[in-house]
Design a binder for these strands. Structure first.
Lengths: 338, 338
DNA sequence: CTGAAAGCGCTTACAG
DNA sequence: CTGAAAGCGCTTACAG
């Protein structure tokens, strides 16, 4: 391996001068710089980043925990975070936790001490019990996309999920729906609360029995829950799905039960991926500011690397928006006939 | 920061002994080890991985390039690779290239010299022109999921895409389809060739005009191509989609044109994600051995770190399988009536 | 603007 | 089984 020392000898300078040329931190006389650059090119010198990291104390790498990359929402978050990091000259170390706290714990242990400059944790699922571990960690931690109760002591950039649920509920109320069902992941209690609040404000109760939890956050799990929901109460005129995968399942369930969307059934979703790669182009959905959230989280983390954030800033709540699609309409004539 | 030296002083030994305890490389007398472990616990010592990397020459991190994590196929590959790496005590540095060779080049430059022990490149899209750059790289590179012509000098673990296309074609032929169209990504020429070969073997030509390229590998791009395909030749009884996102688009197009699947139109896909998170639970598809491919690629890469693979092993071709679903059937009565 | 020195925190032979 | 020494390849003040 070619080292700085080799370059220095070739150029007839000391390695400190080579370092000055490479890092650009200190000005170097043009003639010297040219000699050094020529030597670098001739020898094919490439700086050893690990040695630099040891000397500077920075790896220029940030860790990201997400539950999975197979859910469109998190796939987008990963790419947004990667973009933001790349622009700032950082690498991305990815860990998927698969809703498994023990797995997250192992990953965290592997990241101990100085292998990343900071850690971003997107999504609270399966992690809340393991938060105390984060206190021992040597680098700043920023939480995002956090729906569980917000822990103290960590910077958080997240979405107002209650508001998101409320937007979905109000949309259905404005269309005139009264009897609705909810398809939810167990972790999405806050969105469900917001949704029910919208109905409550109009004097309508969405009963507990109308909330159907998907056993697993998969298409299959969602499909079963959706079929159950529509069979339990065939008179519902609309379905609220708390995330994108469940929404796809809801569409499929409607098809299976021969209810056309939106004529026979409205479907509104949370976490829609409107320009994504999936088949939900026309879904009415609450879209989350993924890009904004990712960038703010990255900025906060990089800032915390150089300047400890004392005191910890309060949580930043970004507002979701409702994007109208063609999956919702006024309740159809079938409403109440069954 | 607590160092090995601090622990050594506390335990009344030298730091080499602490190192021996931590790495377990050299046996240490039980009594000494107990003292060292106690000191580690008391001081909350955590080894500095960067320093270790500099001393050992290994970062225990492997880079992975994928075009995107938003396509189900690559999302699965990322998680499989991550699992294989984690089992072997390695971290995953992720770079998404977004079909952008320039972006890949930048990422590659950032990985120079010793920041990863090895690099896995999954998916050839947008990269073939940049392969020469890989020759300069300081760590082993393994290619996988490679459909473009195989470059010399790199270990490759990929799928027999021609065979995959042939499987899809033969399936449709066995059902009796004669007039078909293909929905393809520009990069998927090999699968298309295999598909056409299946028809050619039966004396049927799939004309060039029946192959519709999606402008972009997105749902929207696929939908446009699918609508064009079905409008250009309404008499086709089956559609072959060369990857999962296009298949989802084909289903949507069928729906939009009021052709029910499989009665009015069969759809067979390549790269299906049967147990994935998407709405294609019942699609007939050619499934790729993602898990097997990912593990073999990881094994090859880790092996190459310690023992240079000389000469470079020949490409490993894994065989895809056709999984029957409910999206294909014999051509319906509509066939030829238009 | 350039050079000599110390140091980042670990591991690795090598003696004892 | 334990200790003294050298080294991994860089950066960072600090003199000159």
């Amino acid at each position: 391996m070619v080292t700085m020392q080799d370059v220095a000898e070739r150029a007839g300078v000391t390695k400190q001068t080579v370092s000055n040329v490479v890092t650009g931190r200190v000005a170097v006389r043009p003639a010297t710089e040219a000699r050094v650059r020529a030597a670098i090119a001739e020898l094919g010198y490439v700086p050893n980043l690990v040695a630099r990291s040891l000397a500077t104390g920075s790896t220029r790498t940030v860790g990201l925990f997400v539950p999975t990359v197979s859910a469109p929402f998190y796939a987008d978050v990963v790419e947004e975070v990667e973009d933001a990091l790349e622009e700032r000259g950082y690498h991305l170390l990815l860990c998927t936790t698969r809703l498994d706290g023990e797995r997250a714990r192992r990953h965290l242990a592997g990241l101990t001490s100085r292998s990343v400059d900071a850690l971003l944790i997107a999504g609270d699922q399966g992690l809340t019990g393991h938060l105390p571990l984060l206190a021992d960690v040597r680098f700043p931690v920023v939480l995002c996309a956090w729906e569980a109760p917000l822990p103290e002591g960590f910077p958080v950039v997240t979405v107002d999920y209650e508001h998101g649920g409320h937007l979905a509920g109000r949309h259905l109320r404005e269309l005139g729906h009264e009897r609705v069902a909810v398809l939810a992941s167990p972790a999405h209690t806050v969105r469900v609360e917001g949704f029910r609040r919208a109905f409550r404000e109009d004097g309508i109760t969405v009963p507990d029995g109308a909330v159907h939890l998907a056993a697993a956050p998969t298409f299959r799990g969602g499909l079963d829950a959706a079929l159950t929901a529509l069979r339990t109460d065939p008179s519902v005129t609309a379905l609220f799905a708390t995330h994108d995968v469940l929404a796809a399942a809801a569409m499929e369930a409607a098809r299976a039960l021969d209810r056309s969307v939106p004529e026979d059934l409205s479907v509104v979703a949370h976490d829609d991926t409107p320009e994504g790669l999936l088949s939900r182009s026309a879904l009415t959905g609450v879209v989350l500011p993924k890009r904004e959230m990712s960038r703010q989280a990255v900025d906060l983390a990089l800032q915390a690397i150089t300047t400890p954030l004392r005191p910890t800033p309060g949580p930043r709540l970004l507002l979701p928006r409702l994007t109208p699609g063609t999956s919702t309409a006024r309740p159809g004539p079938r409403h109440g006939e069954r």
